[in-house]
Write a protein that binds this DNA or RNA. Structure first.
Lengths: 238, 238
DNA sequence: GTGCCCACTCGGTATATACCAGTCAAGTGG
DNA sequence: CCACTTGACTGGTATATACCGAGTGGGCAC
């Protein structure tokens, strides 16, 4: 097997990318090859293929109709499905994304941060505050906390990249999953200013905790996304 | 196989219930039997067992540590994970839930409703407006729209039950999945009154579309949940 | 008594296989 | 020419099997 991925080399993860590309290159509601055809084309078993398909369905890229086939889903609105690749989401919409770095320093963890990251209060963490713009309009602002011991020298990295990308490539801390807590709030003044919104404008507040193997929390990202700009979309299989 | 479920008789769905009960009956962080042991106990293959485990992990009931085992997760806050069983969620918290039926009638579908349900504007739909209380405090209010042709005579049913339950039991329209769109908004006056919140209080606005087999939309539920009472929690596998 | 190693178990991944129920079109009989 | 059957598909589900890498504990050597 010649191909070699940096972190995830599981077949269904590789498949995921390939199939995602395939689906975006097709028109909505056009039909994909059958599962059996795809599995043969990519040289994997059908069960493995289905694992990737399931994920793509859950993420809303494709939908399936039993006895008929797989189809490309209608492109939907903003997917705030991965807080660590926000700029990519915006790019996916064909807009003009940019970021602004407010600050990047190291602080002692507050109670709240320590609890979320499984640290003791006062432990050193990096703090990175950024805002995200789309065509010069502030869309979201976020504060990331990362334990120093997990990623020493993090601030020397290119902070414009996705956080989980940096953690997996430079620190061998691949993020296996991210836990989200979402609330509807009116953020405090500092964040309202950054988003240029009024003091009665609701936002989606995200608490995202990235979790590596062994149940270690690798980052906490607290972000505010403008309520008038963002929809959170997800799907539950019953 | 003697047991017979009304709708879902897939093994992993049955397993899901059994395992969910098992996990809530155990203390957090206590260890579950191994996958191999569970699969034998329930008389299913390990692959089937894992399908149920995966769902329970995604829903946050249990977590797994490779090479060690499965563990019961820390009970978290409100799971607004299924809009169709809200009262059950509240009950799960050990509180005292109740509902109030504001109205139940039939109307012509508006543009928005027709689009979400795949109907033509003006088609008949049932409209059911309810609020949900927890210890006499309004927690959420919702408006459900159901095409009349899908569930004739729906208003004669016990509307206190879960909508997807009624649809599957009485109309043979099992809901396969639900698509959610969530925003942060300040609702209009009617809903603010029902929730007894101020005109600057943010809420989570849910658009939930229940989808049956053959990609038919069976209901649209628009709900507002108090921002100070509800957290939406979910997890993404990367 | 201490330290090392090996066997066993754990979840995670991948494969091959089988059957089901539904769709749909080609073929067939009236 | 229409109605019906048939069979080749589809996705969905379930099973048995195999191997991997990481944790763990018991027993053996020193």
């Amino acid at each position: 097997m010649p191909n070699k991925k940096v972190v995830k080399d599981s077949k269904h993860a590789t498949l995921l990318e390939a199939l995602a590309e395939l689906s975006v290159s097709l028109k909505p509601h056009s039909q994909l090859p059958s599962e059996r055809a795809l599995s043969e084309e990519y040289g994997v078993s059908r069960m493995t293929l289905r694992r990737a398909i399931d994920v793509l369905q859950a993420r809303g890229y494709i939908y399936s109709v039993p006895s008929k086939g797989l189809f490309v889903a209608e492109p939907r609105m903003v997917r705030t499905s991965d807080v660590t690749s926000l700029s990519e989401v915006l790019r996916h919409r064909g807009n003009n994304p940019s970021t602004k770095l407010h600050l990047a320093d190291r602080i002692h963890a507050s109670d709240e941060v320590a609890k979320a990251l499984g640290l003791r209060k006062g432990d050193w963490v990096y703090r990175i505050e950024q805002s995200f713009f789309d065509a010069d309009v502030a869309m979201a602002t976020e504060t990331a906390y990362i334990p120093i011991e997990i990623a020493p020298g993090l601030l020397e990295q290119d902070l414009g990249k996705s956080l989980s990308g940096i953690l997996s490539e430079h620190y061998e801390r691949p993020i296996l999953r991210v836990q989200y807590r979402v609330r509807s709030v009116i953020p405090e003044a500092k964040f309202r200013e950054r988003l240029q919104i009024s003091e009665v404008a609701p936002t989606l507040e995200f608490f995202a905790v990235g979790i590596t193997s062994k149940e270690r929390s690798a980052f906490l990202v607290v972000s505010y996304k403008r309520g008038d700009k963002y929809d959170l979309i997800y799907q539950l299989e019953v």
